[in-house]
Amino acid sequence: MPPTDQQNRPHEHRRGRPRSEAVERSIVEAVVKLLEEGAPLAAVSIERVARTAGVGKATIYRRWKGKEELFIDVLKSIEPLDPELPGTSARDDLVAMLESLRLRGLAKRSSALLYNVFAQMQNYPELWRAYHDTVVEARRRRGLEIVSRGMARGEIRSDLAPELVNDLFVGPMLLRTVLRPEAQLDDDLAAQVVDTVLEGLTPPGDRGRRS
């Protein structure tokens, strides 16, 4: 599947000629094709990708610094998109964020491609580190921003570290999607987690006003 959102498109900062989305799409699709055919990550070289996509290696290197950066964009293209946040309240933004985690968990269960790629990444330290630094860390920062805004607005008690509060929200969903892959991921799980945690994080003076 090609990228369909600005967030999932290849990085904007690359050097070289003006970007051709059609060429980039063909390169990403070539990687996906090789992986779907069973090629292990270690065997998907830039040369092989170029041959499959019908482009020169230089065309790829003008857009990606190396294989790890290319793989990150491929993963972004096949994972569910990060949602736009409603921005109406900390509660609504947190539900949207956790719902995206739930959907990614479901996708990894239903997609053999995603499952195999993530399983192999554990044995590919460079790619795992690049994925963590580029994707996971960006999502963590997004959660911290939501929590910090909620604290500033008085929606979340502010006597705790934002990092801890963010972990309290994200932890239950990660437990079910990563550590307990057999666990239920009900449609309303994100709202259940957020509302339950918020009950203990609401500033004392506001607890009686929560519905």
Rank of each mutant, 00 (worst) to 15 (best):
R9T: 04
V197D: 00
G54H: 06
E99L: 05
D187V: 12
K33L: 07
T59W: 09
E145N: 07
P86W: 05
V178S: 08
A152G: 00
L41G: 04
R15K: 12
K76G: 04
W64Y: 15
V117C: 00
D195K: 10
E99G: 09
P40K: 03
S89L: 07
S77K: 00
A96H: 06
P2C: 01
R25A: 11
R14G: 12
R15Q: 13
T4N: 10
P18S: 13
M1W: 11
R63L: 10
V147N: 02
G208L: 09
S158P: 02
G208F: 03
D5S: 13
G54I: 06
D82I: 01
R109D: 10
G171I: 01
V32S: 01
R19T: 15
T52H: 05
R51M: 12
R25D: 13
L198E: 03
V44M: 07
K108M: 12
S89G: 11
R142V: 00
H132N: 10
R102S: 08
L103Y: 09
D133A: 14
D167M: 12
R15N: 11
G205E: 15
E21Q: 15
G154R: 02
V170S: 06
L175W: 15
G56P: 00
P18A: 13
L103W: 08
E84D: 13
H132M: 07
V147A: 02
V32R: 05
S211T: 12
L175S: 15
T4D: 08
G38W: 04
V165L: 12
Q6P: 08
P86F: 07
E29C: 05
E145K: 06
A161E: 13
E21T: 14
G154P: 01
V44C: 11
L114W: 00
S20C: 14
S111P: 04
D73F: 08
G154D: 02
I27K: 04
L185G: 10
R129A: 13
G150L: 02
A22G: 06
T177W: 07
R25T: 14
V95I: 15
G205Y: 07
R153T: 01
G143A: 09
P172Y: 10
A50L: 06
L106T: 08
L106W: 09
L101R: 08
G105V: 11
A190M: 04
W64R: 01
R149I: 02
M97I: 00
P83H: 04
M97Y: 14
R62A: 14
S26V: 10
L189N: 12
P80S: 09
E126I: 02
Q6I: 13
A183L: 08
D73P: 06
A42P: 03
K108G: 03
R180Q: 15
L113K: 03
R109F: 08
G205C: 01
A22D: 13
R153N: 08
A90D: 02
P80T: 09
L114E: 01
A161N: 14
Q7D: 14
G150P: 02
Q122C: 05
R176E: 09
V197Y: 00
L175G: 14
Q6W: 11
R209H: 10
A130C: 06
L160Q: 14
R17P: 14
E69F: 05
E69N: 04
V197L: 00
Q184K: 11
P86T: 06
R209F: 08
E137H: 08
P3S: 12
D195N: 15
R209L: 10
E21H: 15
E99V: 02
R207A: 04
D93A: 05
T52Q: 15
